[in-house]
Amino acid sequence: MSQYKIEAGTGQHIGDRQEQQDRVALFAAPHAPGYMMAVVADGMGGKSGGALAAEQVVRTSKQLFDEFYPGNNVQALLENILNEAHTVIKLTAVSSEKEPHSTFVALVLTPQHEAIWAHAGDSRLYRFTGPNFGEKTRDHSYVEKLVDEGKILPEEAKTHKLSNILVNVLGSTNATPYITFGKHKNLKVGDSFLLCTDGLWHYFDDAELSAAVAANTPRQASELLIRKARDRGNPRGDNCTFAIVKLINQPTEVKTYTVQKIRSAI
């Protein structure tokens, strides 16, 4: 099985909003070497409310990933994160008289060269193979439902007047959130992932995102994507937040020593 090194980074911009309500984080599992997690949350709910909801998603993700051990079920971990974060966000709504909500998308890479992800809402995960688009999550949104029913075309969804209406979020007092899982096995050098809020994906097509990620380091890609999103979204750009995870070749070991003949001790 091929060996690879994980190269990852995050990017974030407030856009033209007054407050940054998105959150993003990368974690290693202290009790499970070789496992890593990326998580992105897009908060909603008025001033500070959305930020509190998204922060709770990230905080819960770290807390439960810190308790993860090899042999534990990754899908169960992701579902527990969603359920616990949802419960706490609802309690926050009661105590603060706000109506906070959040989306959720998370990715876990395992030492068995497997990627497992889950999402709720319209924050997305993209998977790429080199410069080629592989797949992406399907939004839990009203317009995606219209697409599924054949009432609008996929290209109409982005500009539909109800494109911001979600049918599945954490923190809702009217419905229990559901989770959608994805999986990809036999990871190899050249595979990459992008997790992002709608403040990023709204301004790009699949090919643009795959090319930007493939041709650059995570930091370079972050700078490029934020700049383009700002150009295209100005003056009504949303919060823009994302994580990039790339699998690259292991660095070649460079010899930093010299071997000398050992003199006889006798």
Rank of each mutant, 00 (worst) to 15 (best):
S163P: 03
E97R: 12
C196W: 09
G50K: 10
V94N: 08
S264G: 11
T92I: 11
H86A: 09
E253D: 14
I266P: 07
P177E: 10
T137M: 05
A118H: 12
S96K: 15
K47C: 10
R232K: 12
A54F: 01
S172I: 01
A118G: 12
L166P: 02
E99A: 08
I6N: 04
K246I: 01
H86R: 03
N234K: 13
N80K: 14
N132V: 03
D42C: 01
R232E: 03
D206K: 03
K261V: 10
G134S: 12
T137F: 02
S96R: 15
S48K: 15
I89F: 01
T103V: 05
I152V: 12
L166N: 03
M36P: 03
H86D: 15
L194Q: 05
E55H: 12
I179H: 02
K90N: 14
A53K: 02
R127H: 15
Y4W: 00
I14W: 01
G130A: 00
T60A: 11
E99S: 10
I116G: 00
T258V: 12
Y178C: 06
V167E: 13
S61V: 10
A120P: 03
K98V: 08
S222W: 00
V88E: 09
D22L: 05
L146T: 11
A32N: 12
V105G: 07
A265F: 10
